[in-house]
Simulated scan of single mutants.
Amino acid sequence: MKYLVLLVMWAFSTSIYAVDDEIESLYKANNINGSILIESIDSKVKYQYNINDKESFIPASTFKIPNTLIILEEGLIKDQFEVIKWDGKEREYAPWNKDQTLKSAFQYSCVWCYQRYAKLIGDGKYHTYLRKFNYGNILTGDDVTRFWLDGELRISVKDQINFLRKVQAEELPVQKEHIRTLKNIMLTDNQKHYKIWSKTGWSGKDGWYVGYLVTSNKTWFFANHIEINKKSDLGFRKELTIETFRVLDIIQ
């Protein structure tokens, strides 16, 4: 009996290492340095590659997840459809050069939209919300309009998932209707056999793809951080995540 238990344990650990090797191969085949963490909703199943708990990174536009909740909770915008008037300044990314809604600002990662509200929220209130949310290192910096882009705010891969769990479960200290509005604009993939609520991010060398995936019978949280060395690397934020889900046989 003891021999059988040891055999089962050995077989289980061997399969996990085999999966880790396959994930590593995905990153190396595409010459990408990165780390990914995937967890089941009950925390009983975890897959990870190259995770260092001591490492944390600029959240970039993944901060639009908590930032959207803060803007809504502060009553600065009423819903996902209210128009955010364009200031008329031409920017390098064409989709930003027009009126936005909260939904389009989130999906297009419209920096000027969120910076407009950041000035109204102010540093003091941001610190209050960051503490309430237990988000990252709870630091901002000198510029309230850029602290998530190149300021002092940092978050780890694991903490991204910890925060996403609270979003999915609607267990954050804000009105639940605001969390549901956020979820509406976070739904980015609505496939036949799965749905994904997610956000990408990019600042300097930090590239992110974070969110949660729901299949017919299970929910999975994910956070993928990769090093961006050239613009063509940006596509791998999502691509490597989806391929990892396929390697794990979570989606087909």
Rank of each mutant, 00 (worst) to 15 (best):
Y3I: 06
V5I: 13
V5W: 05
L6Q: 02
L7E: 02
W10I: 09
W10E: 10
A11M: 13
A11V: 14
T14P: 12
I16W: 05
I16C: 03
I16T: 06
Y17I: 06
A18Q: 06
I23F: 08
L26M: 02
A29S: 15
N31G: 12
N33D: 13
S35I: 09
I36L: 15
L37C: 08
I38W: 07
E39I: 03
K46W: 07
Y47C: 14
Y47T: 11
Y47V: 10
Y49N: 12
I51G: 04
K54L: 10
K54W: 06
K54S: 10
F57R: 11
I58P: 03
F63W: 12
F63D: 15
K64D: 12
N67T: 11
N67K: 13
T68G: 13
I70K: 04
I71V: 12
L72F: 09
E73H: 04
E73M: 04
E74G: 00
K78H: 06
D87C: 01
K89V: 01
K89P: 00
K89N: 03
P95S: 13
W96Q: 12
N97V: 07
N97I: 05
K98Y: 07
D99H: 11
T101S: 06
Y108D: 15
W112F: 08
C113G: 05
Q115W: 03
R116N: 12
A118D: 15
K119E: 14
G122N: 12
G124F: 14
K125N: 04
K125S: 05
H127M: 08
H127F: 05
T128K: 10
T128G: 03
Y129S: 05
Y129I: 03
R131A: 10
F133E: 04
N134A: 08
Y135K: 01
N137M: 11
D142G: 07
D142V: 07
D143G: 06
F147R: 01
L149K: 09
L149F: 05
D150R: 15
D150E: 13
G151F: 05
E152C: 00
R154T: 01
S156M: 01
V157M: 03
V157Q: 00
D159E: 14
V167N: 00
V167T: 02
Q168W: 07
E170Q: 08
E170A: 07
E171T: 12
Q175K: 14
E177K: 14
H178F: 14
I179S: 01
L182Q: 03
L182I: 12
K183L: 07
N184C: 01
I185V: 08
L187E: 01
N190M: 09
H193G: 02
K199G: 02
T200D: 05
T200I: 03
T200Q: 02
W202N: 09
G207I: 08
W208Y: 07
V210N: 13
F221E: 03
A223M: 01
N229F: 09
K231R: 11
L234T: 10
L234C: 08
R237V: 03
R237M: 11
K238S: 12
E243K: 15
L248R: 00
L248S: 04
D249Y: 02
Q252A: 08
